[in-house]
Design a binder for these strands. Structure first.
Lengths: 181, 181
DNA sequence: TGACTCATGTAAGGCGTTACATGATTTT
DNA sequence: AAAATCATGTAACGCCTTACATGAGTCA
């Protein structure tokens, strides 16, 4: 049952940037990583427990703080590097908008237009989100991690701009279809 | 447990274009739809059986052929239209390349470069695939479905071109990071 | 006849989401 | 004191993939 469980990579990776609680972890994953990765809450705590049992993660006391946090261990770092080096498996595509558009003849032109308008406005909104993240990162004290963070932000920006352009074009195509028939 | 099962949409949609066997169905889904939708074999037959039990699909004899095929019924068409009109749920992102790149500091510059080169060549390859599909569709006898098919091909082309451009840019960024440090 | 494709399924089990449960701490 | 947030989990259950199983037709 070749699986593609990679929750450990997300968790160890996040902890390699900064020690934090499980709660903060799931927030970090839904906020920052969330643009290209998702984990559900029900996965994070069990994974954290597993990693702790394997000695890849430990409970650490923050310096001036009474709160306990999770920190990655030296062995955890090694494990993370090994996991990151594995080739990424290609994700299974599941694009509901394209599925609907493909059968657009059955959905009807108005429905298709609706989908495209929706896709366009969502893309524009997401673009704003990416720009906000970019500013946020650039406002922080620079670290060695930031350039890599920005690379993923850039990927998001390219993707949503492409989506917006496609939606725009496609709306024009739909108009032509309507006029021709 | 709000679910997002949409196998019925893919199956009914495909049968609305053309009656075919379950075997052909799974081929159609992995070939044409495969660029933006995936279904595993283990889903298709059970779904087909369910749809048949609900009277949305029937076994039909092809005209000059002895082979039996599955065909969508009138009620199936109604059901399909209703399902297509439902808003598409946003897919959960799971991009292994970006996950690795985000933690690029741990992966190392060479590993990152490797990922980007990989992403770029894959995008170029996919672009060729899309162009082939486009030509194939345009070579066929035109139908009312084709314009919608082409819309989804265009979406794929936009997406992979964006990916290629991003990978290209990002490789240059990595060079700058290396020279600076 | 042996290999290959067409064709139709079933079963086991991993993956992952959501809902439920509980309590401490902080803020208003 | 109430409400919100922080914090850590567990349980049920659906989704989906992979592996297994079986047989007919076709082509070299």
């Amino acid at each position: 049952m070749a699986t593609d469980r990679q929750t450990d990579v997300a968790v160890l990776g996040a902890l390699s940037v900064e020690s934090m609680s499980g709660y903060a972890l799931r927030q970090a994953i839904s906020n920052v990583l969330g643009h290209f990765w998702s984990e559900s809450f029900g996965q994070i705590y069990p994974t954290l427990a597993e990693l702790r049992a394997e000695g890849l993660v430990e409970v650490a006391q923050a310096d001036g703080d009474s709160k306990s946090k999770f920190a990655i261990t030296e062995r955890g770092l090694q494990h993370l590097r090994a996991r990151l080096s594995e080739p990424p498996q290609s994700e299974r595509p599941r694009n509901g908008t394209l599925l609907r558009l493909f059968f657009g003849r059955r959905l009807g032109l108005d429905g298709c237009r609706n989908l495209l308008v929706q896709a366009r406005s969502q893309a524009v909104e997401q673009l704003g989100g990416f720009e906000a993240i970019r500013r946020e990162i650039q406002a922080e004290e620079p670290t060695d991690d930031h350039p890599f963070f920005l690379l993923t932000v850039s990927a998001g920006e390219h993707a949503v701009r492409a989506t917006a352009a496609w939606a725009e074009e496609s709306l024009l195509v739909l108009d032509r279809i309507e006029n021709r028939s």
